[in-house]
Amino acid sequence: MLSVINTLRQGSPRPEELDELVPSRYALRVGEIDVLVISDGAFPLPATTLATNASPDDLAAWLGDQLQPLDVYKWPLNVVVVRSGDRTVLIDAGMGDEYPDEPRAGGLLAHRLEAAGIDPASVTDVVLTHMHMDHIGGLLADGLKSRLCPDVPIHLAAVEVDFWMSPDFSRNTFGGFPDVLRSTAKRFVDEYGSQLRPFDTECEVAPGVVVHRTGGHTPGHSVVRLTSGSDRLTFIGDAVFPDHFARPDWFNAFDHDPEEAVRVRTDLLTELAATGEPLVATHLSFPSVGRVALDDEGFRWVPATWEY
């Protein structure tokens, strides 16, 4: 059974530090593992990036059902901090300053870590689900980079690092900004290459915190599975976007292998529906804690009830 806690065990912020009128962090416990979901913000993209192989009418119908505009969709951006044993693990790092022409569209992680009372110097490990700029950009931003321990290990799949040495965008179905994705990944490797701890298939980073490579969205895309006693939680990164519960066959514009991404997400959604295990995802509406259910046409997202 998941239980909610007020914050990670490092003291609550003073009232005067709560200077935002929006919720930006949500804490829960998976057995003996403390979990904090932090919103890095939200960034707008053309709505067509959600489903490049969908017909305009089908995509418009889905957006209409969600009461969303038909031209632009704001992608939530969630980061997770996990404390297990004596390890404090940052899972993904948000956008930083990488999103073109939108300085406030994401990039809020450093501020929100501070508001939550988390000193970046206390982070013992960083895990990256993959190397897209909205997952590594925060590590390149001064607000976070200068405050991390200079030798903090960064865990990610080896094939992910290899891919970004010479990235192939030939199977992507979008006309977005590959130059920015490519240059951000290069700067990241140049900055942190000596700290990378690549793994082949999976890696236990902390007690009960296991990173498992799935591929699909990117060659080395990974999920993070938390296990403590009988409790489970999976951070699924970019394996699933909001439209994929109803239409797991839709290609996300940033899938580097769209067909493999469909297979990965379908298998993952099927597994999570069967087990009832809760999940957190990067681009589901904050705090993105919920479960997967089956319905007549596929899958259904069931958000968890907020507890205070």
Rank of each mutant, 00 (worst) to 15 (best):
Leu21Gln: 02
Ala206Asn: 08
Asp92Tyr: 03
Lys74Glu: 15
Tyr308Met: 13
Ala42Asp: 14
Pro150Ser: 08
Pro23Cys: 05
Val127Arg: 04
Ser194Lys: 13
Gln68Lys: 09
Asp71Cys: 03
Trp250Gln: 13
Pro207Ala: 15
Phe245Gly: 03
Leu156Phe: 05
Met133Gln: 09
Pro198Phe: 06
Trp250Thr: 13
Ala27Gly: 14
Leu8Phe: 11
Val224Thr: 14
Thr124Lys: 07
Val127Gly: 01
Ser183Gly: 01
Val209Tyr: 10
His111Gln: 13
Val126Pro: 00
Lys186Ala: 12
Pro219Asp: 13
Ala157Gly: 12
Asp134Cys: 15
Tyr26Arg: 09
His155Ala: 01
Arg104Thr: 15
Val126Gln: 01
Pro46Lys: 14
Gly138Met: 07
Asp57Phe: 11
Asp179Val: 14
Leu67Asn: 08
Leu279Gly: 03
Phe174Val: 10
Pro219His: 09
Pro303Lys: 12
Ser228Arg: 07
Ala274Pro: 03
Val211Lys: 00
Thr49Trp: 00
Thr270Ala: 15
Val180Asn: 12
Asn78Arg: 07
Asp19Leu: 12
Pro278Trp: 02
Val289Cys: 04
Pro219Val: 15
Asp151Gln: 08
Ala157Glu: 01
Leu21Ile: 11
Asp34Asn: 10
Leu77Trp: 07
Gly41Trp: 03
Asn6His: 15
Val127Phe: 15
Glu260Cys: 04
Glu271Phe: 09
Arg182Asn: 11
Thr282Arg: 09
Asn6Thr: 14
Arg187Ser: 05
Thr282Pro: 00
Leu272Cys: 08
Leu109Cys: 10
His244Ser: 08
Ala261Arg: 04
Asp101Ser: 15
Pro100Gln: 10
Ala54Arg: 09
Trp62Cys: 12
Arg187Tyr: 02
Gly176Asp: 11
Gly85Leu: 13
Ser222Lys: 01
Ala116Pro: 04
Gln66Ser: 12
Leu109His: 05
Val240Ile: 15
Arg9Met: 08
Val127Asn: 03
Thr214Lys: 07
Gly64Pro: 07
Val224Arg: 00
Pro69Ile: 14
Leu67Gly: 07
Arg87Gln: 11
Asp58Met: 10
Pro207Gly: 15
Asn252Gly: 00
Ala121Pro: 01
Phe163Met: 00
Val30Asp: 02
Asp200Leu: 14
Ile33Val: 13
Leu109Ala: 04
Leu181Tyr: 00
Ser12Thr: 09
Phe163Pro: 02
Ser194Gln: 14
Ser122Glu: 13
Glu114Trp: 01
Val123Cys: 12
Ile5Asp: 01
Asp243Pro: 05
Val302Trp: 00
Trp75Ala: 02
Pro120Cys: 11
Ala293Asn: 09
Met133Pro: 01
Leu140Trp: 00
Asp92Glu: 13
Ile5His: 02
